[in-house]
Nucleic acid binder design. Structure first.
Lengths: 187, 187, 187, 187
DNA sequence: AATGAATGAGGGTTCATTCAT
DNA sequence: AATGAATGAACCCTCATTCAT
């Protein structure tokens, strides 16, 4: 039933965005009564927050899965593939994505977003650690991870929401470059 | 009078954030009646949008001013100084900054935000053009600008809102590196 | 307009009692919209409380007026007349009276009820002071007033709400006796 | 099981008052499920009513017990002792007492309250009958009983709920006097 | 008998917007 | 132009009661 509510919440957010996601709409979509929502969630924003959390989990899992087994490939290939996976995972209904980025930071104190960025950060950090050789030796790892995670996340989201006149392949190409060059040793 | 409304809107957003910025609060702060707001703006979000637009203008002006006359300095210096100016300009009341990034994209179809990014983009593009020599010759300029603008903007905002444990100097250092390395020619 | 709301509140409480006095019913009865209630009262219970307060004021005024100019009459006559006035003043729609006694103590921390009893207490105290001669000399005045006020109030209300098989004249007779005998000197 | 529900109801009313006495809270406290309440009571208020009825029974029993065997004592002594017993019996958690007096009259058509007052009335009537000698010969017995019962009940409750600055001994003294003087023969 | 998830009508309240003055 | 009282749709949430299991 929690599942049904989250599915409904996800669907309503995708169709109507955060403002249009009233509890009654979510309940109707889930085929239940408004009161039932409150058997499983303390208030509306907890539903939205949970939907975002699940979305984040799915996203990280998907990316991780798609990456597994390609770690032997050269850096540009694997990084680009990862970014492509992220781009695909975030390519959802714009109202939903907008709700995620506009309200995620506020809901449940940003729990869902922080968890997502935390997990992506771990992936990045793990990767960087294996690559230590080719990196600037003086790079502050924590800071670098912090920046890379937010950069790729934000650029991907903006690419999907603003639909700039940039071909997808070029976008991935450049984003890969941005990430890889950042930690390249000074010449 | 428009000015008075914008000042009030700015102040209210800074103190109460977007959710707390009711029309009556803005009117009271401006010393006028709620109804009068509608003589100058078609609806509430138009006020917020105009506040954001003015903020963006001020920001760009400030950064531009602070940059003028330093163009002869080496790239890392001038870039870093620009980013520092941006960081200072964005260092406002968190509720206001949050309102700007969470609601700016939606209000008036993102007009204020687009204008801001457009102008920052022009600065970046102008700079890159003068630097053409030291860049990857194959870099797609438009795309690069698009990415750089959004990257520095977002990282700066996140740095201010999330207050990660990264020293300001290091943050500026790394952000500068991220930007400069991106377009470095391949080795 | 406050007047209109109070009238409507009074009427709705009289017809439907406290439970049936929804804000929308009050607004409809007042011929205004639900939202307008909140321009004049912070929440529903403030309306009810104000209605009760006004009722208490009216009641005390009425009793006081009806008493004025009869102070030279013998004690039993004036006391009985006062009680009759109180009985008449409280003889309103039972749902209203019930709302007053069941919810008055809670609303606004019992403000309306306390004010009413306070003022009735002053009347009683004033009367007793003039009668000092015929009273038990050891009677604790404050305590006596406290008891008399609540006794006549409660018995009157109960008489009206429970409609016991006691003729009105007899009720007044006995209530008068109860009050007067209480402070009679010991034989 | 009925017993368990009544115990739970009593406890919940004592802790949370009428408004806080939700069926689920009562069920939880009783260690059963909400649905099971309806196997033994037709609706929530029937539970509250039954709790009040039981409380009234206990109260009357207690007072009666404490009185038995003191009937030979002089009137002021026995009356005062009875009132003291009543005061003690009513000295329970304020939320419970409040619930009893504010909602008792309404629940189950006032059944619990009427039963209580009926039984107290019988005690009073029995006492008065034995005292017939010292009373006003013209006193309408039913009316006198009706008034005395409600007077002592209400004043006692108000004394406990409002906590006026009246010492307990004085309160009992005066209440005793109020009751005894009422039926004293005219001088 | 017992469960407890599901119900759903109804509640109080907010606030952007309007419009008679 | 300026007012600000009035609007009213829409919101989130509660909880006594039901009923399939």
């Amino acid at each position: 039933m929690v599942e049904r509510i989250l599915d409904a919440g996800r669907q309503v957010l995708g169709e109507y965005g955060y403002e249009g996601a009233s509890t009654s709409r979510i309940a109707t979509t889930a085929g239940i009564s408004p009161g039932s929502l409150y058997q499983y969630f303390p208030h509306k924003d907890a539903i939205v927050s949970a939907v975002l959390e699940r979305f984040g989990d799915t996203l990280v899992s998907g990316v991780t899965t798609r990456m597994s087994g390609h770690f032997e490939q050269p850096a540009p290939v694997i990084v680009r593939a990862t970014l492509a996976a992220l781009l695909d995972g975030l390519d959802v209904e714009p109202p939903f994505l907008r709700a995620a980025v506009e309200h995620g930071p506020r809901l449940d104190d940003g729990r869902a977003l922080r968890a997502f960025e935390q997990r992506v950060g771990e992936l990045v950090r793990a990767y960087l650690t294996t690559q230590r050789g080719g990196l600037r030796p003086d790079a502050p790892l924590d800071t670098a991870v912090w920046m890379l995670v937010r950069t790729v996340e934000h650029l991907t989201v903006r690419y999907l929401l603003d639909r700039p006149l940039i071909p997808r392949e070029q976008f991935l190409e450049e984003l890969t470059r941005l990430a890889l060059n950042y930690l390249r040793p000074a010449p």
